[in-house]
Design a protein around this nucleic acid. Structure first.
Lengths: 121, 121
DNA sequence: CTTTTGATTCGACATCTGTCGATACAGAGC
DNA sequence: GCTCTGTATCGACAGATGTCGAATCAAAAG
C-alpha cells in the first residue's frame, strides 16, 4: 500500500510543478478525502500526538460525543487509506500513524523540494 | 478567509505535536475535503502548473470527459474552500491558486518546523 | 440590438457518506 | 465452560455529493 503510493507519487512531484496524472490524482485524493472530515482529522492528530506515538481506541472514544461504532468507522476509513494501522495487544487495540505518508502529502503540496521524504521517522 | 485559516491554524501547530482542537479540525478538514476528489486535485494542479500560474476554464475543460457545469461546480468548491480564486478578463475567466494555503497545509502535516509559511510566493 | 461564445447557476437524479442501534467477535478473568 | 469488557461489523436511514441537461448571465462581434 505504501509502495503503491510511492510508485504513483514518486519522491518529488509537487502539485504546482506539473499536472497530476489521472492515477496520481486518484491515489492522492483518496488520502485527502480520508482527512476531509473533522472527526477523522482529530483522530489522526490524537493518535499522532499521543504519548509513545500510539493510542488505543479507549483513549479516543471519550473525546467525541459519538458512539463506538462511529469511531470504529472513522478509524477504518483512516486505516484503509493507509494513514494509520492498528495492532491488538491483549484487550486493547493500539493505533499509530504512518508519518511517511503525511510527509509524502506535504511534499506534494509544497512547490520546492523543501521536504525530505520523512523516512527518518 | 485566509486570515481565518491563519487564526485557526497558527503558524506552527503540526498535527503530530498536539491534538487539533475542534475548530481547527473543522477548518482544516474543509480544505482537505475540497482536495478529496480526483478531478479537483487535477484542476488544482493544472492551474498551479500552468504557464504564468493561471489558467482559464477553457484550458481546463478539455482535459476531462466532463460537461462544463461539472467543471464549474468543482471550481466553485475549490474557490469556496479558499484554494483558488478567479478573475474575469474579457471573455475568459482566469483562475490561480493560493500557494500560502497549500504551504499552511503542508506545515500542518509535517512533524517539525521544516516549512516556512510560504509567504515568499 | 441580435447573435455567438465562454462560464455559471438551477433542478433533478443516483450514489456515497456519517451516524446510530443491534449484533457479533476476541481476550481476560472467573 | 460462562461472563464481562473493548472493538468491530451489519443494516438502516437522513443528508451530502458528483453528474448531467436546460436555462441564465456576460462580454464580444456582427
Amino acid at each position: 500500500m505504501l509502495a503503491e503510493l510511492a510508485d504513483v507519487v514518486g519522491c518529488c512531484s509537487p502539485l504546482v510543478r506539473e499536472p497530476l496524472t489521472g492515477p496520481q490524482a486518484v491515489e492522492l485524493s483518496r488520502l485527502f478525502k480520508a482527512m476531509g472530515d473533522p472527526v477523522r482529522l482529530r483522530l489522526l492528530s490524537l493518535i499522532a500526538s499521543h504519548a509513545g506515538g500510539e493510542a488505543c481506541v479507549c483513549d479516543l472514544s471519550g473525546v467525541f460525543e459519538l458512539t463506538g461504532p462511529t469511531i470504529s468507522h472513522h478509524l477504518k476509513v483512516l486505516r484503509e487509506a493507509g494513514l494509520i494501522s492498528g495492532e491488538r495487544r491483549g484487550t486493547w487495540i493500539y493505533y499509530r500513524v504512518h508519518p511517511e505518508v503525511l510527509a509524502t502529502l506535504a511534499g506534494v503540496l509544497l512547490p520546492a523540494g523543501l521536504v525530505s521524504t520523512g523516512m527518518g521517522a
